[in-house]
Computed example of a mutant assay.
Amino acid sequence: MTVKKYKSASFVLIQFFLFIGIFWNSYGQTQTNKYDIVLAGFTIGSMQADKTTTAKGVDYQIHSKVEFWFFGKIHVEFLQKAHYENGQLMRATTNSDSNRGDFLTTVTWNKDHYDVDANSYKFHNEEPINQIIKASTAMLYFHEPKDGDVLISENFGMLTKVREIEKGVYEIDVNGNMNRFHYEGGVLQKVILENNIKNYSIKLKVD
């Protein structure tokens, strides 16, 4: 009788831990990095970057909000998502809500190419991409790239190549604007983004 009870209890425990394992893997593990958005020495907004790993793949999400005055109040909210399966980008979406309008960009894997429908202020792109994509700008908030890496700008649906300009500092051309990513010990510390009006930066928050 004691042996049967022991086996029964062991079976219940095994089932419990299996359930917990399945639940944990399906729910996913999320890594979060938070940043301040800085213009001319003033913090004008915030950004949160999330990386969630599940049994189905890896999801990246970048969410930022910015408000400042420039001949009137400027408001921009930006949400960028990228989903990967087996190391390949399967779909990406970018939503932006601003004083200049609301814009949506989608990049979707379709059998042997990516369908692109990119929209932003005074910009539209529907040129398909005929190669597999393994990296995108959202990944840069969690992974230090290598010189020569090719990635996609989810917002513009365009490929760009990473150029290392010094140790831990990488430059990419995003639709004619040069953006620099600064890493220390493999962790992204700062991004300097080129802008037609004035360059601004994204700086890692330190608790």
Score class of each variant (00 low, 15 high):
M1C: 08
T2P: 05
T2I: 12
V3A: 05
K5Y: 09
K7I: 03
V12T: 12
L13D: 06
F16R: 10
F16G: 14
F17R: 04
L18K: 00
F19E: 02
N25L: 05
S26Q: 12
Y27I: 00
G28L: 00
Q31P: 04
T32C: 06
T32S: 11
N33R: 09
N33D: 05
N33K: 06
K34T: 02
I37N: 08
I37Y: 08
V38W: 04
A40T: 13
G45I: 15
G45F: 15
M47C: 12
Q48Y: 10
D50F: 14
T54Y: 09
T54E: 07
G57Q: 12
I62R: 02
S64H: 12
V66Q: 10
E67N: 14
F68I: 13
F70Y: 13
F70N: 11
K73V: 12
H75A: 08
H75C: 05
E77G: 10
F78S: 10
F78M: 04
A82Q: 01
H83F: 09
Q88V: 07
L89P: 04
R91Y: 07
A92K: 01
N95D: 13
S96Y: 06
G101L: 11
G101N: 09
G101A: 13
D102H: 10
L104M: 11
L104N: 09
T108M: 13
T108N: 14
W109T: 07
K111S: 06
D112K: 02
H113C: 10
D115P: 03
D115F: 02
D117K: 10
A118R: 03
A118N: 06
F123M: 10
H124V: 12
N125E: 08
P128L: 12
I129D: 08
Q131W: 04
I132H: 06
K134Q: 14
S136I: 06
E144R: 01
E144I: 02
P145H: 00
P145K: 00
K146S: 01
D147G: 07
D149R: 00
V150N: 03
L151E: 04
S153V: 11
N155S: 14
F156W: 09
F156M: 11
G157W: 07
G157V: 07
G157L: 05
G157M: 06
T160D: 05
V162A: 04
R163Q: 13
R163Y: 11
E164S: 09
E171P: 04
E171D: 08
D173P: 07
D173W: 07
D173G: 08
N175A: 14
N179M: 04
N179P: 01
N179A: 02
F181I: 07
G185I: 02
G186N: 01
Q189I: 00
Q189L: 03
K190V: 03
K190C: 02
L193Y: 03
E194L: 01
N196R: 02
Y200K: 03
Y200W: 10
I202P: 03
K205L: 05
K205D: 01
